[in-house]
Design a protein around this nucleic acid. Structure first.
Lengths: 211, 211
DNA sequence: GGCTAAACGGATGACACCGTCCACTTACGT
DNA sequence: ACGTAAGTGGACGGTGTCATCCGTTTAGCC
């Protein structure tokens, strides 16, 4: 999977610089930063950037790959928590805080990853972990029975909407939204029932791609 | 307020066509549609469009003005409902459905209206109505006491996040999100309390502008 | 040290959109 | 009917971004 043509030392160095610059830029200014800006920030020429990452997409994919890994680790933490409900909640809070802190991350979630084949594995693992977190929380009787794993995607997308705008306000808004939603998710509060067909992750994903 | 320089008949006609075209375009493709596309859709030249609406912003402002008026009428309906809680709920559901159905409307809400001086009056009226709806619902004991009118903005922004992507999926997601949130808003469910400082509308508005 | 392929960076062409300018057309008052 | 001012459409210059090409520099091996 890695026939890595063995980059020269300076090339490897620059590659890292580019990734760092891209991550910073995406985090602060969102996903559609000019390639030239990233190159400048990284202290390299545009050509270097394009040689290393043939398309804008491949760069985004690469950067986002790391973030996705972080996500996966958050899921693992949730599973490690002895209290299933606390794990569930703090997982959600953490990811939402990440979304607010990093605008690019947010957009990447919306825009979906068209060719994220490399991450498919990570993604699947994350999804399985997620399903397990949900299952545990339900089994503990704390999470309402009609909660669907896809509701997490829903929450994430909702949080994206709140995450626009800047820092503190977005952060406060996000925390409040999450607090509200977590209350709805609790088993004790399970009202009649939300009369809505749960969405599958695939559908949401497909829609984002098809846009 | 309307020294209306009395447009010629054909000009008036075209103006309407432009507004219609713009509304359609914004609804389906979002807010950043090329001016040329709108002109073509309206069957007029680009110059005509620019003469009628000096800047892209002024066009958006104009189109959105109508939508805002619709919004205001929804608030009035809520106030007219003898059951405060039902009015509150259906108001939210209606507006959210509108957001999902019209992508431009959604974006306009996020991007804020920098020079919407003309609408200031409508906006203020809508906000006052909103506050009244909230007050009534609280007085009826159905809406939790720590609910802040700004939470409506929060909900709207969250719904924006869900509204991206296409039609049915977005619609289903939105309905489900709203259902969840409405449950949290109910007085009976008022949990310990969301430990989050309520946001003021001004802050949210300011943040969107400052972006 | 010196050679070579890898890596570099800036200049460059292609493209899309914005907003203006100008020569032609048409509504409408007399 | 006809003159004129208002209205119209398309062409055009300006700008910003993408992605490539090419002459120059440099790392790494002998």
């Amino acid at each position: 999977m890695e026939p890595a043509p063995a980059l020269r030392a300076d090339a490897r160095h620059n590659r890292v610089r580019i990734l760092e610059a891209a991550r910073e830029a995406y985090a602060t200014r969102g996903l559609d930063v000019p390639m030239a800006a990233i190159a400048r920030r990284a202290g390299v020429g545009v050509a270097t950037l394009y040689r290393r990452f043939p398309s804008r997409e491949s760069l985004i994919t690469e950067v986002f790959g790391d973030e996705l890994a972080t996500c996966a680790s958050v899921v693992d933490e949730a599973l490690a928590d002895p209290d299933p409900w606390r794990g569930f909640c703090s997982m959600i809070e953490t990811v939402c805080a990440m979304q607010v802190a990093d605008r690019g991350f947010t957009e990447a979630f919306l825009t979906a990853f068209p060719d994220a084949i490399d991450y498919e594995r990570t993604r699947v693992r994350a999804e399985q972990g997620l399903a397990e977190v949900v299952r545990r929380a339900k089994a503990a009787g704390r999470l309402r029975a009609d909660f669907d794993p896809a509701d997490l995607t829903l929450l994430l997308k909702a949080n994206c909407g709140v995450a626009t705008g800047t820092n503190e306000v977005a952060a406060a808004g996000s925390r409040r939204l999450v607090a509200y939603l977590l209350q709805s998710f609790r088993a004790q509060h399970a009202e009649p029932l939300p009369p809505v067909p749960p969405l599958t992750l695939d559908l949401l994903h497909g829609a984002a791609t098809a846009r």
